[in-house]
Design a protein around this nucleic acid. Structure first.
Lengths: 117, 117
DNA sequence: CTGTATCCATCTAGATACTG
DNA sequence: CAGTATCTAGATGGATACAG
C-alpha cells in the first residue's frame, strides 16, 4: 500500500500495488507462459512460497480480475488457475521491465560495486 | 527480495526489487519531474514518509546508481538529490505502467466490485 | 537543515498441523 | 489434492529524541 500523501508524487501507485506485491509477478508470468495450471503444479513451478501465501496471492489476483479460479469438487479435488485477458494485458509492462533489466542491470551491479568503496 | 526458487518463474525479479520497493517510485518520479531537490523539499513533496525511511531509500537508490547525492557541509547543511541517467532510463517502464493503469484500472475496480458479491 | 539512534507497533511470511 | 487455522519469527516502517 502506497500511503496517501500527495498522490501527485506517485500517480502510478495503484498499478504498483496491484502488480508488484510479493509473488505476484512469478504467478502471473508462470500462468502467462505455461497456461492453465492446477494449484500443486503452480506451487511447484514457483517454488519457495508456502501454500498459505500462494493461496492469499491467488485470491487477491482473482479479486482484481487478473486470474480465474475453477474448482472441481472431485475426489481428490482439483483447482485450476488461469490468467485472464486483463492479466495478459500486462504483457507490455513485463516486456518493458525485462528490456530495462537486460540493458541496465549491469550498470546497477557496477554502481553497487563502486558503492562498496 | 524475491526468494530463490526456480528463477525461471520470475526472470524480472531483480528489476522489481530495484524499482518497486516502497517509496522508490514516488522518489524517482519526483526527482524525474522536478529535477534536483534538497532533502526537505523532496520530503515535503512526497509526504507520508518519515525522514528515516526516506533516507534509507535514498541511500539504496544511490547505491544502485539511480540517484546522486551531493552534500554541502555548510551551516545549515544542504543535501541535494538528483536522478541519474540510469534513473531516467526507467522512463519507458513508468510510461508503460501509467498507460496500463489509465486503460485498465477501471476493469480492476469493476472486478473488485463483482468479487464482493 | 540533514540526518542518526532507539525503541516499538505492525505486517508479512514461514512452519506446522489439520480438514473436507 | 487443495486448501484453512494457528502460531511465531523476522522484517519493515513509524514515532521520538537527539547530534553535527
Amino acid at each position: 500500500m502506497n500511503d496517501d500523501g500527495p498522490v501527485a508524487a506517485c500517480p502510478i501507485g495503484p498499478v504498483v500495488d496491484i502488480v508488484f506485491s510479493r509473488w505476484t509477478t512469478p504467478i502471473l508470468l508462470t500462468l502467462h507462459n505455461d497456461g492453465r495450471l492446477r494449484f500443486v503444479e503452480l506451487h511447484r513451478r514457483i517454488g519457495g512460497v508456502t501454500a498459505k501465501v500462494l493461496t492469499d496471492r491467488l485470491r487477491r489476483l482473482e479479486r482484481d480480475g487478473l486470474v480465474t479460479r475453477t474448482y472441481f469438487a472431485e475426489v481428490p479435488p482439483r483447482a485450476e488457475y488461469e490468467i485472464t485477458e486483463l492479466g495478459r494485458s500486462l504483457s507490455p509492462v513485463f516486456a518493458s521491465l525485462a528490456a530495462w533489466q537486460s540493458e541496465h542491470l549491469g550498470e546497477v551491479e557496477a554502481a553497487r560495486g563502486r558503492f562498496e568503496a
